[in-house]
Design a protein around this nucleic acid. Structure first.
Length: 511
RNA sequence: GGCAGCGUAGCUCAGUUGGUGAGAGCGCCGGAUUCAUAACCCGGAGGUCGGCAGUUCAAAUCUGCCCGCUGCUACCA
């Protein structure tokens, strides 16, 4: 029996600057989902990468005095090292400058063209020679002399450029039918409603090529044109589905189960992408999830405000698992969220140091001191054990329901309820007092607490892969008993446990 | 301008089809305890549920208006 498959992607980052917290957040959240699925018995493919073509990269490269490819080679490095330090378990880091991708995009174009959906037309708009960019009417500002200027203050002129167009307008009904039949296609629901309204309002054909720059994938048969970056970029998911690296349109991992993207690019994934795929006769992804933005102390991150935080510095300061935990626990997945040093310290001290870490440490240290570090025997379940069991049944059920519904924060809520139940059980039975009166009962209480801790840590693995591995080592959990199949498999009594050591020390702001 | 949504304890938020005296977590205060990372456990304070007016025996929960905020979208300067 083969494992069920799960193909998940992040959006690909545009490397015309350094990675920021938004990139880190998306990568972490997607990684949590990927790890959850692996533990849940799925064969997972996790794709992430960078979107390297387009005018802005071309301009930035020119400003840096480098050829575009050399420029992006430099710029992509910080993104790759960020993934490294965040513990992102991707299977491929795709770059849209990869050869298999270029081949695939051209094949995709030809399929869309063969279906009669591409035609040559004219693209009109306000063009700035200095910016080398087109602007919508609404983006323009009025200059001192009353003339129209680009947002950068450069003069613009109404320009007509030859362009290939995609017959997006022909897909309105098909898209609406898709939404009707698959409301889960766009999540969360608020985004779904927006996209449906957008499509219902009518669609214009989409310009999908440019002649004003050359840093892109050439249009097959019309090399004066390079492809519109979004067609190029979106197709990365298809390229990544062919794990053989040949860039064929029928990669074995397609269709994707989940595209995790920022709320600002939901439209491209929820409208343009399925239309392109329909045109090419390719299956559609199952779900597009638009996550929210991270705000720094409630304010949007921006260079002008000077509040752009380097995620790598956050990892250095707090540790990767604290950062991962905080972002998943404090931010409702799908909503905007806010972070600050104080909030990270407060949240992780409460949940990790006082909660999970202390639970493990207090029980493990008693086993070490009173039982020579040998895993004790579990006893008959009494009233307090039954209550604990009840709490863990409902808690783990809530956890799995939340995870399968992509409600990461709710899953952690459920997990913390289990932590509270375990700490309550421990305090109620006071094994430190039993140590003086009833050592057998004490051992039973410790065994039950250790097993509760083991279950909690197993469920916490997607969120904190490093710390949970350490804790599972201390709890004596075998390497092959750490996935969700092992959830109900207790550690054998009599097993010698290693000496316990705190995994989540309390931290302070000054520290 | 249109559409959608939101405004509930200091903070982040839950609150099913209107009905036991309005909840959780964190923070704060007090108690208890000492196994543990001054942690855990127990208890407490604190809210006229944005405002006004309605519907109803009864509204945080329905209706209208107003204020503030957010998203999508259209357009005019």
């Amino acid at each position: 029996m083969s494992k069920p498959r799960f193909y998940v992607t992040t959006a690909i980052a545009y490397p015309n600057g350094r990675p920021h917290m938004g990139h880190a957040y998306e990568a972490i959240a997607t990684d949590v989902i990927a790890r959850f699925k692996r533990l849940d018995g799925f064969d997972v493919r996790f794709l992430t990468g960078t979107d390297e073509h387009g005018l802005k990269i071309d301009q930035a490269a020119r400003a840096a005095g480098k050829p575009p490819k050399a420029y992006v080679d430099d710029m992509v490095a910080p993104f790759q090292s960020l993934h490294e330090s965040l513990g992102i378990s991707f299977d491929r880091f795709i770059r849209t400058t990869d050869d298999d991708h270029k081949a695939l995009v051209q094949a995709l174009w030809q399929r869309m063209a063969a279906n009669g959906d591409l035609y040559l037309g004219r693209y009109e708009g306000w063009y700035s020679v200095r910016d080398e960019a087109y602007y919508d009417e609404g983006e323009l500002v009025t200059g001192e002399d009353g003339g129209k200027l680009s947002p950068n203050g450069a003069p613009v002129e109404w320009t007509v450029e030859e362009s290939w167009f995609f017959k997006l307008s022909a897909y309105q009904d098909k898209l609406l039918a898709l939404y009707e039949g698959h409301p889960e296609y766009i999540q969360p629901a608020s985004r779904f409603n927006e996209m449906r309204a957008f499509v219902a309002g009518g669609l214009s054909d989409l310009s999908v090529s440019r002649t004003s720059f050359t840093w892109g994938i050439p249009v097959p048969g019309d090399e004066r044109h390079v492809m519109y970056v979004w067609l190029d970029a979106l197709a990365n998911y298809l390229t990544g589905a062919d794990a053989t690296g040949r860039g064929s349109l029928d990669g074995e991992w397609w269709p994707a189960d989940l595209h995790v993207v920022g709320k600002d690019v939901v439209r491209f994934h929820a409208v343009y992408w399925p239309a392109f795929l329909m045109s090419a006769g390719i299956a559609l992804p199952k779900t597009v999830f638009g996550h929210g933005f991270l705000l720094n102390r409630g304010e949007k991150m921006s260079k002008s405000l000077g509040n752009v935080v380097d995620p790598a510095a956050m990892v250095d300061r707090f540790g990767v698992d604290r950062l991962r935990w905080f972002l998943c626990r404090e931010v409702a997945f799908g909503e905007d969220g806010s972070y600050s040093d104080e909030a990270i310290v407060e949240r992780t001290n409460a949940d990790l140091a006082n909660g999970i870490g202390n639970l493990a440490q207090r029980s493990l240290s008693m086993v070490a001191k009173n039982l020579g570090g040998v895993m004790p025997v579990r006893g008959e379940a009494g009233e307090t054990e039954l209550r604990l069991k009840e709490a863990f049944l409902s808690g783990s059920e809530a956890y799995f329901t939340a995870m399968n519904g992509l409600a990461l924060h709710k899953a952690l809520d459920a997990l913390m309820a289990m932590v509270a139940a375990a700490n309550g059980y421990f305090a109620e039975n006071a094994p430190w007092a039993l140590a003086k009166t009833d050592v057998v009962r004490m051992a039973e209480v410790l065994a039950a607490t250790l097993d509760a801790t083991r279950r909690i840590v197993i469920l916490a693995q997607p969120f904190m892969p490093g710390s949970t591995a350490q804790l599972l080592d201390q709890l004596g959990v075998a390497a092959d008993a750490r996935d969700f199949n092992g959830f109900n498999v207790p550690v054998d009594a009599g097993k010698q446990l290693p000496p316990p050591a705190g995994v989540f020390p309390r931290i302070t702001l000054e520290g």
